[in-house]
Simulated scan of single mutants.
Amino acid sequence: MSRTDSIVSKINQAYVLELLERLLAVPSPSGYCRAIMTLLAGEAEKLGFPLSFTPKGNGIITVPGASRERAIGLSAHVDTLGAMVRAIKPNGRLRFTLVGGYMLGSVENEYCTVHTRDGRTYEGTIMTMKPSVHVYTDARDLKREEAVMEIRLDEPVRGEEDVQALGISPGDFVSFDPRTRFFPNGFIKSRHLDDKAGVAALFGLLELISRREAAPARTLRLLVSTYEEVGHGASWIPGDVEEMIAVDMGAMGDDLSCTEFDVSICAKDSSGPYDEAMTTRLIELAKREGLSYAVDIYPHYSSDASAALRGGSNIRAALIGPGVHASHAMERTHRDGIMNTIALLAAYVADPAAPYGTQED
């Protein structure tokens, strides 16, 4: 296959990267996704594919295919790691609780924003209760856990009443400064590439379809979930979905072969093996299209497809996504990993027998 004939060459990379930058700029910890879902609804409408909402706030986009049978589900999650105010301390600092699973050391000294219930926002910094080595002899050795962490507000507060006067109360969401950087060499570093890079990939596929550069063989149900980081993002999916591909980040490190340039194909995660035939077909298509890919096992990982299976969905499932270094910390990927993911999705949805479409039940 020549370079000009490849699926990657047809992807509107500028569109994908611009959308990713916009997504990363919108705070969306799990459960606080209305603003970003409004953005995505508008974006889907521009591409000619209206987005509808489930009762819990997930988005569903339907793309008609050549066959209306055996719909394929594609999912990505727009919710991110974050925090929530647990209590206001007598000194005017905030105690917080985690939203999602991450190392507290990865957010220490990070800038954050507190979002009040009435729409106000206040900046602050996450730190330990002993933040200075000039003052505390055990500042370096202090175990990083919720009990010793707090948020210092950038407001003139000296006590609990001052904080309450700002409208801040327990249950308010806290988002982290993403610190996004796009580099000319293709690297992208930011918090929350898990899984906003996956969402950008789904919309890159939609954009291809809108230009008729990709044609789904079967109806697609694209699910954008808002609670994946807390375990139940896609626990409900449309009933006509028989195959589901979760598009989420590929982990890197230790004995894993994935790099930031690859599309990761996960054969097994903490929920067990993914569908053998789907995974095999994804590998075959990656080879056919000349894509940079890796097949790995992630023992400390689960996906929207895992949630759908645990929720009782009678589906076959697979998991792919761009390689992301330092997941749930200061993440980094490369545009090639995202484009390889889009290309693999486009190849799969265009294949009428990928892998079950021509078989009888």
Rank of each mutant, 00 (worst) to 15 (best):
L94R: 02
Q164S: 11
T38I: 09
L166Q: 08
I209K: 04
R22F: 00
L202N: 05
V247D: 05
C266I: 15
L222T: 01
N185P: 00
G57N: 05
G65E: 06
M103G: 03
G92T: 11
D361T: 03
E243Q: 12
M249F: 05
T113W: 15
D177F: 08
L205F: 04
E229I: 06
G159D: 15
A347S: 15
A267R: 14
H77A: 05
C266L: 10
T137A: 15
L256T: 10
L74R: 03
I245S: 02
L47Q: 03
Y298P: 00
P355V: 10
S313L: 01
E276T: 12
A197G: 13
G357W: 13
A87K: 11
S271Q: 07
L104M: 13
L282C: 09
V78I: 15
D162V: 10
L202V: 07
L23H: 03
Q359E: 14
T113P: 02
M149Y: 10
A350W: 00
V263R: 07
S210T: 07
I11Y: 04
K143H: 09
R86Q: 14
R117I: 03
A201I: 01
K46F: 10
P29L: 12
L222I: 15
K89T: 08
A326F: 13
D255N: 12
A347E: 09
R34D: 13
I265L: 14
D79F: 10
Y274E: 06
D194K: 09
E229W: 02
T137Y: 13
K196D: 04
Y136S: 10
G92P: 08
G59W: 07
C112A: 14
G357I: 13
V135D: 08
G100L: 12
G92I: 12
K189T: 12
